[in-house]
Design a protein around this nucleic acid. Structure first.
Length: 578
RNA sequence: GGUCCCGUGGUGUAGCCUGGCCAAACACGCGGCCCUGUCAAGGCCGAGAACGCCGGUUCGAAUCCGGUCGGGACCGCCA
């Protein structure tokens, strides 16, 4: 069999006219005219028309065949401009069926998408579809461009363990029981965070890794339990170095995969402003809609719904919908459902809503002014606790853009969310770290950390494009006094610090370079480049929303003997809280 | 933990709101026959689903109700 050196079905062109070739591939389509039969023979590179004049073999779709024959220009007028090989055809002289195929459970073509459940069960067939093959090739290309780019800048790829120890970020760990240490567990890495910092102490200076990461959290359209990051870290750098490095990488990726020039440097946006204006920390800037804070306009309002929220420390936010006066009651109700589905109280609107009779004229005027609403516009309003109001308005903003076709397709609006802030409030209203406890604060903000801890900025940054968070990172603390101060502010007891971060802190006593890094998510990058909003499209063997692998049947029960060996006992089977 | 959408032959859809005309329609695929230039080939013939599962309402359910399982989107979660 000489398929390895044989020409590819999808690569034949007019210049191959007259060539004797041997082709291997799958029967993608068959057009039987009795005396003459055409088949489209498909391989990874595409498909070419094969002409069979004495078809004695019974060919069915997806049969694997070998064809020997001569490439020739198609007869005048029968060229097919729709396909890359459309100028030529291969006149078969010899045909061999290598492997037969049952009719596939769904058509192996791009035109019609089968139910995703079936696609995942027969993923190996789904990946035969040209669209999916293209996604895998795109992903490969992205990985190669990344490696080229990083190597050129003298980064070296270092592999870190998959069987590791729980890391200091906040997600749930996947655990692996240890046979040799009964009752103890490895954790799969949520990210190689601590290890890459240790590599900086090792003097690697420029590290990167195309690293698999694992987080046992609930899934979304752009989230899988295992995913891949370009994990990188560098010594003796500041934020500008990281920004320039990453901007250069993205420019190169976009250029070399889809031929697009993107504008660098990327603009920067303070995270608080992002939440205020866009209701999210990953704004899509391909449309202009901006949210306004209406607290100022309603300071003395007698409208009860606003009064109670504002008095309770909540906020009122509004968004002008361009031409929104034409929205139907039904459409507005759907938006209210959206808001409630997100846990909000609902939505109000002016004019035309029940609010009209409760608001003073000057309040309506102020609302219009703050949101920039014109005569034909409708202002949608959410009143709630700050975080909730922002989430709701962010979703509404997105939905309005979608429905009213305000998204400028084809644009790539990259930006940095920077600066961010060191601390956040947790559920109990206590101070906690927004990123991880090694994130470097702005030194000049530290003097007021006691009075206004939430205003202390951090040298941390997220890269965002078209509404997707593509990665995040920070500069790290390398000064022991600063580190101690942060731990102290977090109120972390010494033994907890020692237990969780002891290795790193000890390492830092042996000469630590200032360092920082970032970790762009490769799956999402490929999603963007591949023009899909489904992360499963860019992963060869993904899991469902309930974390099942429908093809392999994972997770599964295991033999009792395996559990015995691990000294693991299943106590009860009940649905977990999620 | 919550909200929402979906589940009909191998595949994609229609029917479901307004129960009976639905042992369910159409297209592709599948089986057979015809056809020497098509490319979503075409023509003729044929097989194939009691409508995810369980229960209820009803004289009667794919259609209504409840539960359950599975897939998907989102909030919480991931930070």
């Amino acid at each position: 069999m000489s398929g390895y050196t044989a020409p590819h079905c999808g690569s034949l062109r007019a210049s191959d006219d007259g060539r004797e070739v041997e082709l291997y591939g799958w029967v993608a389509r068959r057009r039987d005219h009795g005396g003459v039969t055409f088949i489209d023979l498909r391989d990874r590179w595409g498909a070419v028309q094969v002409v069979l004049r004495h078809a004695d073999a019974q060919l069915r779709l997806e049969y694997v065949v070998r064809v020997r024959g001569k490439v020739s220009l198609r007869p005048k007028g029968s060229e097919n401009p729709k396909i890359a090989t459309g100028q030529v055809e291969v006149v078969a002289e010899e045909l061999e069926v290598i492997s037969e195929s049952e009719p596939p459970p769904f058509p192996i073509e791009d035109a019609e998408e089968a139910d995703e459940k079936t696609r995942l069960e027969y993923r190996y067939l789904d990946l035969r579809r040209p669209r999916m093959t293209r996604m895998l090739q795109l992903r490969n290309r992205v990985n190669r461009v990344i490696r080229d780019y990083m190597e050129e800048r003298e980064f070296i790829e270092v592999e870190t363990p998959i069987l590791t120890r729980s890391s200091p970020s906040g997600a749930r760990d996947f655990l692996v029981p240890s046979r040799l240490h009964p009752g103890e567990f490895y954790a799969l890495p949520q990210a190689p965070q601590m290890l890459k910092q240790l590599l900086m102490v090792s003097g690697i200076q420029r590290y990167y890794q195309i690293a698999r990461c694992f987080r046992d959290e609930n899934l979304r359209a752009d989230r899988q339990p295992e995913f891949t990051q370009l994990d990188l870290e560098m010594s003796f750098c500041d934020e500008e170095d990281v920004f320039a490095l990453v901007e250069g990488l993205f420019a190169r990726l976009w250029k070399e995969t889809i031929g697009v020039d993107i504008a660098v440097p990327f603009p920067r946006l303070d995270i608080k402003e992002s939440f205020l204006r866009y209701g999210t920390d990953k704004p899509d800037l391909r449309y202009a809609l901006e949210i306004a804070d209406l607290g100022e306009a309603l300071g003395d309002t007698r409208a009860v719904i606003f009064r109670s929220v504002l008095d309770g420390g909540g906020v009122v936010r509004g968004l002008a919908v361009p031409g929104g006066r034409d929205m139907s009651r039904r459409e507005l109700d759907e938006l209210v459902t959206l808001a409630k589905g997100a846990g909000g109280q609902g939505l109000a609107w002016v004019p035309g809503g029940t609010l009209d009779k409760h608001l003073a004229a000057d309040e309506v005027a102020a609302i219009k002014r703050l949101t920039g609403a014109g005569e034909a516009d409708l202002v949608l309003i959410a009143a709630d606790r700050r975080r909730k109001a922002e989430t709701v308005m962010g979703l509404v903003r997105q939905e309005i853009a979608r429905r009213r076709k305000l998204i400028r397709e084809g644009e790539w609006r990259f930006l940095w969310i920077n600066p961010t802030y060191l601390f956040e409030e947790d559920d109990q209203g206590h101070l906690t770290y927004a990123h991880h406890p090694f994130t470097r604060p702005f030194a000049e903000d530290m003097p007021f950390v006691e009075e206004r801890p939430y205003d202390v900025r951090a040298h941390a940054y997220d890269i965002v494009c078209n509404g997707y968070e593509l990665g995040g990172g920070s500069l790290r603390i390398y000064d022991p006094a600063m580190q101690e101060r942060v731990f102290q502010l977090l109120g972390m007891p010494l033994d907890l610090i020692r237990e969780r971060f002891g290795t790193l802190l000890t390492a830092f006593t042996y000469g630590v370079p200032p360092h920082g890094g970032i970790a762009p998510g490769i799956d999402r990058i490929v999603m963007m480049l591949g023009g899909t909003d489904n992360i499963r499209d860019v992963i060869a063997f993904p899991k469902t929303q309930s974390m099942a692998d429908l093809m392999l049947g994972a997770p599964s029960e295991v033999d009792q003997s395996q559990l015995d060996e691990l000294q693991v006992k299943v106590v009860a089977r009940k649905k977990p809280d999620s």
